[in-house]
Amino acid sequence: MSDPIATLIARLLAHRVLPRHDPMARRALIDERFRQDLDQRLAASGLCLLENPYAEHISIALASEQIGPVFGSDDIWQTNNQGMKRDAIALLTVLWSLIILPKRQRQHSRRTREELDQADLFGSEKPMPTQEVASVLSEEALIADFGHVLGGKGRINMNLGQLARLGFIKRYNHQITEGPLLDLALDYSKLAPRIIDGALGDVLREMGADIPTEMPTLASEEDYIDEEPS
Rank of each mutant, 00 (worst) to 15 (best):
L181E: 02
G152W: 01
R113V: 08
E227A: 13
E114M: 12
D22Y: 07
L49G: 00
A28I: 05
L95G: 06
L116R: 15
I30N: 09
D3A: 05
N80W: 09
I143Q: 03
H15N: 13
D210P: 05
L98R: 12
H174G: 08
E222N: 14
G154T: 10
L218F: 06
L91A: 07
A88C: 11
R106S: 06
S45P: 00
D3N: 13
P212A: 02
Q107K: 04
D210E: 15
A134K: 11
L13H: 12
I9D: 01
P69Y: 08
D37P: 00
G161Q: 07
L160M: 07
S45F: 09
N173R: 15
L121N: 11
V70I: 13
A63K: 09
D226A: 10
L150Y: 07
R106M: 12
N52F: 09
L12D: 01
G46M: 13
V136R: 09
H21R: 13
S138F: 08
D39Y: 01
A25K: 07
P69N: 09
T130N: 10
V136W: 04
E114S: 04
H57C: 11
F146H: 04
E228Q: 14
A43Q: 13
I60Q: 06
A25L: 10
K85P: 01
T79Y: 15
L166V: 01
R35L: 11
A141E: 13
P127C: 04
D31Q: 08
H108K: 06
L13Y: 03
N52M: 10
I196R: 10
L12T: 02
E214P: 00
R16C: 01
I156D: 04
A61E: 09
S138I: 00
E132A: 12
E178C: 09
P129T: 01
G151L: 05
N173I: 00
A219Y: 08
L204F: 02
A192G: 11
R33D: 12
A141K: 13
L92D: 04
I169R: 04
I99L: 07
P53T: 05
L92T: 04
K85D: 14
D22A: 14
S230T: 11
D226M: 12
G198Q: 10
G123Y: 01
T93W: 01
E140S: 14
G72Y: 06
A25S: 11
I156C: 03
S97P: 06
V70Q: 10
S109V: 06
I58F: 07
E32P: 02
G167W: 08
L95D: 02
L47W: 10
R194F: 09
D210F: 08
I76E: 15
G167F: 05
R86H: 11
A141Y: 01
Q36C: 09
V203W: 06
L204Y: 06
L95Y: 02
D3G: 10
P127N: 03
L186S: 07
A43W: 03
E206V: 02
L218D: 07
F168A: 02
L150D: 03
R11I: 03
G147A: 01
P19C: 11
H57G: 03
H21P: 04
H57N: 14
Q131S: 14
P193R: 08
Q36W: 03
R165L: 10
E221S: 14
G123C: 09
H148N: 12
R165Y: 02
N81D: 08
A14N: 10
L137M: 08
P102K: 02
D39I: 06
T7N: 11
